[in-house]
Design a protein around this nucleic acid. Structure first.
Length: 130
DNA sequence: GAGATGACTTGCA
DNA sequence: ATGCAAGCCATCT
């Protein structure tokens, strides 16, 4: 039967972990939020964690973001920084400067791997989505 | 199944 | 204010 023939494209719509598993749940939620980050805005892992209802699972958010690069559609992971506005995940990009380039391209000034006016450009999923 | 790791956050000294 | 430790959840070895 060709039932086993699944579209590889469909599988790519799900996060691909190093193990090759795709049966995720919170990952999808995280990506759903991350994709809704407005251009030129940034948010923190903790904020997304709260938005998905895990509050303290900020680590999982960051971990999920590491997979974001292999997930389709692509996730604007460069808009996600830590609570201090630091580009903690820049090293996950092709180049450690690529994340900063993307942010500056969107109008977000970055200095010393830190988002300038972070408090102003901060996008709270709980408030904006609510 | 246990131990260690991680793009984090918060609290206390 | 700077620095260290604990907590947190999912994944990896």
């Amino acid at each position: 039967m060709s039932a086993t023939k699944k579209s590889r494209n469909d599988e790519k719509l799900k996060p691909v972990r190093p193990s090759g598993k795709t049966d995720d749940t919170i990952f999808d939620l995280i990506y759903a939020i991350a994709r809704q980050i407005p251009r030129g805005r940034v948010t923190s892992y903790g904020a997304i964690a709260k938005a998905i209802g895990s509050g303290k699972s900020a680590r999982i958010v960051g971990w999920a973001m590491s997979n974001a690069g292999r997930v389709k559609p692509k996730i604007p992971a460069h808009r996600v920084v830590n609570s201090m506005g630091l580009l903690s995940g820049k090293h996950a990009f092709k180049t450690i400067t690529y994340m900063q380039e993307l942010l500056e391209r969107e109008g977000v000034k970055v200095k010393n791997d830190k988002v300038m006016d972070f408090k102003t450009k901060f996008w709270n999923p709980l408030e904006e989505l609510f």
